[in-house]
């Protein structure tokens, strides 16, 4: 039993798609018919069975193929994974957190056995079976953060806490919505969020920072963020923007359903115990417009959200060039009927 992993691509042939069960569990991010940047943080506790919240580190049918895509990105550009030297304790904290969570959540796929600091890790989907000494880097093929995040969906940023601020001093970033780890590493929370429009004036980041500085171990939190991506491309990095940017000009009324994707980030934040650092996993979920509109509420609501999005946000998210085409396409799926407030389906 367990998850049936798909063999698919996120580049060139772009064979990615969601199975009907995976469409059902898509974390649709809009609780109402309009969107405004907000912090919308809630406790990251296990949620409904079958949902992306059932397990704290969700593994889905795209796992094996996403990990293959990550390996390709790293081969082309090793700078997508970096850690400043003082982050080694935090790297081990992260390895422990993920191994513990995954082996508890998915015992059929992952096993962790510990005898003191001698650890045995089995990852069946990826065919990994390693024994290593916790705390001794020389016993792993990579540094601990790289080792475990080559086996975990989503990007990861680790923030060190000092001088009443959070400093992004380590990360694995290969599926990002247009930000560069190599450029941003070492920045503090405010600097890193510098380019986000509107939110600064609202004091969003000051409040969020104050909240995060007191984040407690054992009480992770989460929020959703979103953007759109043309083609199911995971690696929409600024590094390769000159290679994928032209995708945005290729949207036509005929290909919206297959080519245009809503991209949702399930972001969680965890205090790490030994290092007092905070890890920020950013898990990306993609859904095609043709898949999205199979749920009538999502079709109606996303049409309304996209139509009324403030232009500066559309620009920041890179939607301006194709937004009208997509809104027009979505209008066929919006009969004007009211939608219910919240995430529940109509």
């Amino acid at each position: 039993m367990g998850i049936q992993f798909k063999d698919e691509t996120f580049r060139d042939s772009f064979t990615f798609k969601n199975s009907p069960q995976t469409i059902k569990r898509f974390p649709f991010p809009f609780p109402e018919d309009k969107y405004m940047y907000s912090v919308n943080i809630e406790p990251h506790v296990p949620g409904a069975k079958g949902s992306v919240y059932e397990h704290l580190f969700d593994v889905d049918e795209h796992y094996v193929s996403e990990m293959r895509d990550r390996a390709l990105v790293l081969k082309e550009d090793p700078l997508r994974c970096q850690a400043l030297p003082h982050m080694m304790t935090a790297q081990w904290d992260l390895l422990e957190l993920i191994m513990e969570c995954k082996s508890k959540s998915y015992p059929e796929h992952f096993t962790l056995e510990k005898q003191g600091d001698k650890w045995h890790w089995i990852n069946r989907p990826l065919g990994i079976d390693d024994t290593f000494t916790f705390g001794d880097v020389s016993t792993l093929p990579y540094e601990p953060m790289e080792y475990i995040t080559r086996q975990t969906q989503g990007d990861f940023a680790i923030m060190d806490q000092r001088d009443n601020n959070l400093w992004m001093d380590a990360g694995m970033v290969t599926t990002q919505a247009d930000w560069s780890l190599d450029f941003d590493i070492g920045m503090n929370f405010m600097e890193w969020h510098g380019p986000v429009p509107l939110a600064h004036q609202m004091g969003v980041f000051e409040r969020a920072l104050k909240f995060l500085l007191n984040l407690q171990h054992g009480h992770p939190v989460r929020r959703l963020n979103w953007t759109m991506t043309i083609n199911p491309r995971l690696d929409t990095s600024p590094e390769n923007y000159h290679k994928w940017g032209k995708d945005r000009t290729e949207v036509t009324p005929d290909n919206v359903g297959d080519k245009v994707h809503l991209r949702v980030e399930l972001q969680s934040l965890w205090r790490l115990p030994r290092s007092n650092a905070i890890v920020f996993p950013i898990r990306c979920y993609l859904i095609k417009m043709s898949e999205l509109v199979t749920e009538p509420k999502w079709g109606r609501r996303f049409h309304r959200v996209l139509k009324d999005l403030p232009p500066e946000l559309a620009d920041y998210k890179g939607l301006t060039r194709y937004r009208d085409t997509v809104v027009e396409w979505l209008s066929k799926y919006d009969d004007g009927k009211p939608t219910s407030i919240g995430f529940g389906l109509d």
């Binding site: 070492g186 510098g194 380019p195 600024p238 000159h242 290679k243 940017g245």
Partner: peptide
Amino acid sequence: LTLLVRDHYSRRIAAFQGVCIDAEVP
């Protein structure tokens, strides 16, 4: 490449970020 110079500064690199300005329509 022709770069848009952003107001985004990295102390570690001691430089502002430049991103290709005509990636979408060369």
